[in-house]
Amino acid sequence: MKKYTYTEKKDTRSGFGAGLSELGKSNPNVVALCADLTGSLKMDAFAKDHPERFFQVGIAEANMIGIAAGLTIGGKIPFTGTFANFSTGRVYDQIRQSVAYSGKNVKICASHAGLTLGEDGATHQILEDLGLMKMLPGMTVINPCDYNQTKAATIAIASHEGPVYLRFGRPTVPNFTPADQKFEIGKAVMLNEGTDVTIFATGHLVWKAIEAGEQLAAEGISAEIINIHTIKPLDNAAVLASAKKTRCIVTAEEHQMNGGLGDSIAQLLARELPTPLEMVAVNDSFGESGTPDQLMVKYGLDAKNIVAAVKKVIKRK
C-alpha cells in the first residue's frame, strides 16, 4: 500500500475560495454570485478584491441562478456560491431550464454538502445533490476530495465551456493531494494499485478509502484505490480496466446510494462488465444533528465500513 501523508487538515471550501481568488486575478471574465453565505463559502477574498465582479443577491437562490445564466450572455463566467442544498434541490427547475437546457456556462459551486455539515441537521444536509445534478443532460459533476484538489478543480472548471456542479464541504480533512497536481475533468486518479478489490471513492470518502486500504494491507488484502473526483462524465475506461483486473468493487461516497457514484458505476458495470459490487453510502435515509465525525460513523461512512464491504464483496467473486 502506497503511503499517503499530510501536514495539515483543511476544509475543501477554503480550497474553493483560494481557487476563486486566483481566478479573480487571472481571468477578468470570472464573476461570482453569493446568496448571503459569503463567509461560509470563503468567497470573501474575491468579493473584497473584485467588488465590481461580485454580486451579493441576498437570500434568493432562484434569482441567483437566473442572474448567473444571464451573465453568460455577454461572455462572463459566473460562479454561484451557496450551500449544496440551496444550490440544487431548491433551484432545480432554474438550473434545468435557464442553465442546463439553455447550455449556459454557469459554475454552480456548493459547500456544506452531505452529513459533514453537522449540527444544522437534515434540513441542510443534502445527500441527493449528485443525483439531481448528474441527471441533467450536459451537466458536469465534480466532487473533489481535499483542499488542494478543490482549489485545482475550481481553477480547471473556469476553462471548461458548459455548466458544472462543483461540490465541496465544511469540515477539515487531510490535505494530501499534491498542490501542483493538474486537475483533469473526467479523469480518475489512481491512488493505489492493487489486485484483490477496487475501491472507488469520491469527496470526503477518498481519505477514508486510503485508511481502509492500510487496514486491508495489514490483513494481506491488496486494494486498488481510485479517486473518482468527476462523477459525470464518469471515467468509464478507468472503471472498466480496474474492474477487469480485481473483479470486485466497493464504492464509497457521502451521498444517497440512489443516484450517487455507486449508482453510476453499477450502471456502467451492469452494461459492460457485470462485477460484484458493494456500496458504502447513505441508504435511503435523511441525516440528523451531530458532529461530522459522529454522523459519518452512525451512517456507516467510515474506513471500518469500507473494510467490511471489501471483505463481503471479495467473497462474492
Partner: peptide, 15 residues
C-alpha cells in the same frame, strides 16, 4: 425565470 436572466444580461452589459 426570465427577469432574473435578463438582469444577469443587463449586469454583463454594465461590466
Amino acid at each position: 425565470q426570465g427577469l432574473s436572466v435578463a438582469i444577469g444580461a443587463a449586469l454583463a452589459k454594465k461590466l
